[in-house]
Design a protein around this nucleic acid. Structure first.
Length: 413
DNA sequence: AATCCACAGGAAGATTAGGATA
DNA sequence: TATCCTAATCTTCCTGTGGATT
C-alpha cells in the first residue's frame, strides 16, 4: 500500500504546530522591539487615509532588522483601514533586487495597477517613456493614493528611475504617489542625484540591528506559535540568537536557523531539538545556499568553475598551494570549453565572471602583485571541490567534463 | 631608481534575443 | 513583412599599477 508510507509519516508526532510562522515570508502580527518604528511609520502614512499623499520615506538598516516586516505590516494595516473607511489607498511592495531597471520598475508598478490582463505591459519591447505614459494613465483612471515601496533600493541601476518616480506626481491629476525607499546601504544616498535625495528623504528612519537578547525575544515569540510545548531544549533559542547576533543581528537568519534545526531534529525523529541540531543546521544552510547558487549559474560560469576545480586538484596532486592565477584558469577554461565544443569567451569576460563567482562566495579572488611577474588575482575555492562536483554532476551539459573514460566509469575530473 | 610583467578593470561599441508596431 | 525599441551579454581597445628584478 502506497499510502502507508505517508500514514506512518503523518502519524509520527511532529514537533511543529505551524512551521510557516518561521518562514521569512510570514508577516507576524507582533513585532517585538519594533513598536516605536511601527508607530513612527504609521504616523507618516496617516495622511493617506485622508486622501492626501504622505511624505516620502527613506528607511535604512541592515538585513534582517525588520525593515521589510515593519513596512509590510503597516501597509497591511493601512489597506485594512482604507477599506473600512472607504478610502482609495494602494500599497505596492517591490523588491529592487528582482526589479532592477528603470523600465522594469515602471512596468511592474503599472502591472500592479492595471487589472485587465490584456493591458499588461510586456517585459520588453516598449520604449520606456511609453511605459511611463501608460502607467500615469492607469493611475489616473484608478485615482487615490498609492504608496510604492522600493525594497533594496540600492540595487536599482541608475538613478533615472528614481528621478522619474519622485516627479510622477506632477504628471498625475487624480492620483497621488508616495515612495518608501528601503536600503541596507547607509551610504546609498551619498551618490544620489541631489533632487532625488531631497525628495526621497522627506522622512528618514533608521533600523538598528537586534542584539542577542532581542533576537531571543523574537524567537521565543515565534516559537510559541510554531512548536509544541517542550519541543525545544532550553539552550536552543539562546544559541540560535547568539549565532545570529554574531552575524550582524539578522533576525531572518535566526529564524531560519531555528526552523532548519527543528526540521533536522524531526527527520531524526528526535523528541526534542537540541544544540547538536542547531550546529548541523548552521552547516546545512550554508551548503544549501551554495548548492542553489551553483545550480543556477550560467553555462559559461559552470565551465569556468570546473576549470578552477580541475586546476586546484592538479595543484594539490603536485603538492603545491591550491591557489592559481587568472591566466592559468583561463587556459584551463579554454581547454574545457573546446572539449565541450562550446565557443570560449575572452579573458576580459572571464575576469568578470571570476569576480562574480567571488561575490557569490564560491571562490575567493583577491588581487595580488607578484612583482616582476605581474599583477593578477589569486584564486582559490572556498567550497570543497567535492561538493561542486557533486552538484554539477546533475548538469547534463557540463557533466562530460566530470565523468569521462566512459563505460560507467566514474573518474572524477 | 628604473623597468616591466600579467594582468585589473574602465569605456564604448557590437551582437543577440525578445517584443511592438506599421 | 520590415523596422523599431530595450536589456543583457560579450568583445575590442584601452590605460593603470605593485613590487621583484635589473
Amino acid at each position: 500500500m502506497v499510502s502507508d508510507v505517508f500514514d506512518s509519516l503523518l502519524e509520527k508526532s511532529s514537533l511543529f504546530i505551524n512551521r510557516e510562522v518561521l518562514r521569512p515570508t510570514y508577516t507576524p502580527e507582533v513585532l517585538p522591539h519594533r513598536e516605536k518604528e511601527i508607530e513612527n511609520l504609521a504616523q507618516i502614512f496617516l495622511p493617506a487615509l485622508r486622501g492626501e499623499a504622505p511624505s516620502n520615506v527613506f528607511i535604512y538598516g541592515k538585513t534582517g532588522t525588520g525593515k521589510t516586516a515593519v513596512t509590510k505590516y503597516v501597509g497591511k494595516q493601512l489597506i485594512k483601514k482604507g477599506e473600512e473607511r472607504k478610502v482609495n489607498v494602494n500599497f505596492i511592495y517591490m523588491n529592487c533586487e528582482v526589479v532592477d531597471t528603470h523600465y522594469r520598475l515602471l512596468q511592474n508598478i503599472a502591472n500592479h495597477i492595471i487589472d485587465r490582463w490584456e493591458d499588461r505591459i510586456p517585459f520588453t519591447g516598449l520604449p520606456t517613456d511609453e511605459v511611463y505614459a501608460r502607467l500615469t494613465k492607469a493611475m489616473d483612471e484608478k485615482g487615490g493614493v498609492t504608496i510604492v515601496v522600493l525594497d533594496e533600493i540600492d540595487k536599482l541601476k541608475g538613478d533615472e528611475a528614481l528621478y522619474t518616480l519622485t516627479r510622477i506626481n506632477s504628471d498625475l491629476s487624480r492620483a497621488k504617489v508616495s515612495l518608501v525607499g528601503i536600503s541596507n546601504d547607509l551610504k546609498f544616498t551619498e551618490f544620489l542625484d541631489p533632487r532625488v535625495k531631497s525628495s526621497l528623504g522627506e522622512e528618514n528612519m533608521v533600523f538598528y540591528p537586534y542584539d542577542a537578547r532581542q533576537l531571543q525575544d523574537i524567537l521565543e515569540h515565534r516559537a510559541k506559535k510554531a512548536f509544541k510545548p517542550d519541543a525545544l531544549a532550553s539552550s536552543v533559542i539562546p544559541l540560535c540568537a547568539a549565532l545570529a547576533a554574531q552575524e550582524h543581528g539578522d533576525a531572518r537568519r535566526a529564524l531560519d536557523l531555528l526552523r532548519v534545526s527543528a526540521e533536522l531534529a524531526e527527520r531524526e525523529k528526535a523528541a526534542k531539538v537540541t544544540e547538536k541540531h542547531v550546529r548541523k543546521a548552521l552547516h546545512k544552510i550554508e551548503l544549501d545556499h551554495i548548492t542553489e547558487v551553483i545550480k543556477t549559474l550560467p553555462l559559461q560560469s559552470k565551465i569556468l568553475l570546473l576549470a578552477i576545480v580541475r586546476e586546484e586538484r592538479e595543484k594539490k596532486a603536485t603538492g603545491l598551494k591550491p591557489s592559481m592565477t587568472t591566466g592559468e584558469v583561463y587556459e584551463r577554461y579554454k581547454q574545457l570549453s573546446k572539449k565541450l565544443k562550446i565557443e570560449s569567451l575572452t579573458q576580459r569576460r572571464i575576469a568578470d565572471l571570476i569576480s562574480e563567482l567571488d561575490m557569490l562566495g564560491i571562490i575567493t579572488a583577491r588581487v595580488i602583485s607578484k612583482g616582476r611577474y605581474g599583477r593578477t588575482r589569486e584564486i582559490e575555492l572556498s567550497t570543497p571541490s567535492s561538493e561542486i562536483i557533486r552538484i554539477l554532476q546533475d548538469d547534463d551539459t557540463v557533466n562530460p567534463l566530470i565523468l569521462y573514460g566512459g563505460r560507467g566509469q566514474t573518474r572524477l575530473i
